Amino acid sequence: MRRRAGLAIAGVAALAWGEWLNWRWSRVLVGNGGGASEAVVVLGYRNPQATANLINRWRVRTGIRSISADGAHGTRVIFSGGAAGGGTAEAQLMADYAKSVLEFEGTVLLEDQSATTWENITNVIPLLEDVDRIKIASQPAHALKARAYLRRQRPDLAERLVRADDYRTGEWTVVKPLLALYGLWTLRGLKADERKVSL
């Protein structure tokens, strides 16, 4: 009985830890940017098949729901990601999913050359120069990494970063501890000042 109780407590603690860490990451390196124009950058994930995979479908939904209520038509959604294994570019697969399945009718731009997160950021910068608010949509740890990369490459644009709707309590709860562990590993290269919660 005690063993079961201990396992149950450990399981609840792991779930709470995963929730907390993902919540925290979604609030790092973002501000309260104002202004009328907005861009949502949706980062692709390895996608060798002919349609958007589970991760990319979730990222597209996250990007679409991140559009400010007052900016639905003025927001540009930028899908970023090159071709995995010589197939169709991740950006194109995500855009196709957004239009055909989610029936998104807003402005869509494609960046279809990137193979890494650093390249994602490098290649979308020209598409961000004239917007007031920038949101990066992905899993919270990955989005934080991308925000840190934007800060390193273009600190002036990084000042325009605001939160995407990439964290929701109870969403992916069961896998959040695994996402948190993986996130800790992928974020190990971030500096101390790139880990501070902004809000």
Rank of each mutant, 00 (worst) to 15 (best):
M1R: 14
R2H: 10
R3H: 06
R4V: 11
R4Q: 04
A5K: 15
G6I: 15
I9Q: 11
A10D: 07
A13G: 13
L15N: 00
G18C: 05
W20E: 08
W23L: 09
V28W: 06
V28P: 10
L29Y: 01
V30R: 06
V30N: 06
G31W: 02
G33R: 14
G34P: 04
G35Q: 14
A36C: 13
V40S: 06
V42Q: 02
L43T: 01
Y45M: 14
Y45T: 13
R46I: 04
R46E: 03
A52I: 08
N56A: 11
R57P: 00
R57H: 03
R59D: 07
V60R: 05
R61K: 13
R61E: 07
R61M: 09
T62I: 13
T62C: 12
I64W: 12
S68K: 15
S68Y: 13
A69E: 15
D70P: 00
G71S: 14
G74S: 06
T75Y: 04
R76D: 03
G82K: 10
G85I: 05
G85E: 02
G85T: 11
T88M: 09
A89Y: 12
E90W: 10
Q92T: 15
L93I: 09
Y97A: 04
K99A: 11
S100N: 15
S100Y: 13
E103F: 02
G106R: 11
G106W: 04
G106Q: 04
L110K: 02
D112F: 03
T116I: 08
N120W: 00
N120V: 06
I121G: 05
L127W: 03
L128G: 01
L128W: 08
L128A: 06
E129K: 14
E129C: 04
D130K: 06
V131N: 08
R133H: 12
I136Q: 07
A137W: 08
S138V: 07
A141L: 08
H142P: 14
A143W: 02
L144V: 03
L144P: 05
L144H: 05
K145N: 12
K145G: 00
A146P: 02
A146G: 09
A146L: 02
R147I: 05
R152I: 01
R152K: 12
R154Q: 02
P155W: 05
D156C: 03
L157D: 05
A158F: 01
E159P: 01
R160G: 10
L161A: 00
D165Y: 10
D166F: 07
D166L: 12
R168C: 10
T169Q: 13
E171V: 15
E171G: 12
T173H: 13
T173A: 15
V174Q: 13
V175M: 10
V175Q: 11
K176I: 13
K176F: 13
L179C: 00
A180V: 00
L181W: 07
Y182W: 14
G183F: 03
G183V: 07
G183K: 11
L187K: 12
A192P: 02
D193M: 15
D193K: 15
K196S: 07
V197P: 06
L199I: 14
